[in-house]
């Protein structure tokens, strides 16, 4: 059966729409969380790796990547629901980790990285551990962080994360309330 070019073109239009819709859907989901989500400050440490397609980023290690629990029944890569509350300084604290979705809006759908039995530690991956930066700034950001850690004054390094019903969007990273991009300007 020979397909005419006009028929091919119609199918092509559909495929082209799907090709555009994937990144558009990605944008829509994130924008919705940024607009209606609750913002949390996650304490973190940055290091600087690179991705061949998406550029340089700082890899973030949140305090909330580790949750102490006596429960041992966790499988690697298993989906989990992590609920948060804010402490006195507005930093995120894990309230609970469950295998069923909670009834509130302030939880993130995450994955179990591993469970370290002898330390009772559940290691969690939120899928927001990368903060993409201008290629000239990512390394400088890591150096700045190491410098700020080695002096005697304690610095607050944190990320602002918007959370809404399972979705989490990493918005920015701060050292002492200054965006990390401006710190290394």
């Amino acid at each position: 059966m020979q397909i005419k070019s006009t028929q091919l073109f119609v199918i092509f239009i559909l495929v082209a729409i799907v090709q555009v819709s994937i990144p558009v859907k990605m944008i829509y989901q994130r924008e919705s969380v940024l607009k209606y989500g609750t913002v949390y400050k996650f304490k973190t440490q940055p290091i600087d790796p690179a991705d061949p397609f998406r550029g340089r980023y700082v890899q973030l290690h949140f305090d909330a990547n580790i949750y102490k629990t006596q429960e041992t029944n966790w499988k690697n890569d298993e989906p989990i629901y992590v609920s948060f509350i804010k402490d006195g300084n507005g930093f995120a604290q894990i309230e609970d980790v469950t295998k069923e979705a909670p009834n509130n809006e302030t939880y993130v759908l995450a994955k179990v990285t591993s469970y370290v039995k002898w330390r009772n530690e559940l290691h969690i991956n939120y899928g927001i551990e990368r903060f993409y930066m201008k290629e000239t700034k990512a390394k400088a950001a890591e150096i700045k962080y190491i410098e700020s850690e080695s002096d005697s004054i304690s610095h607050a390094v944190y990320a602002t994360v918007y959370v809404k019903a399972g979705e989490a969007v990493l918005d920015n990273v701060f050292i002492d309330d200054i965006p990390i991009g401006d710190v290394v300007e």
């Binding site: 990144p23 998406r54 899928g127 993409y132």
Partner: peptide, 29 residues
């Protein structure tokens, strides 16, 4: 296009799932 959207919104997503989406979208072409 997928890479840049991931970059703008700091989407970690591992490399393999990115490559998978990319290939799936290209195959009909």
């Amino acid at each position: 296009s997928i890479a840049l959207v991931a970059q703008i919104y700091n989407i970690s997503g591992d490399l393999s799932s990115y490559l998978f989406t990319w290939t799936v979208l290209a195959i009909p072409m």
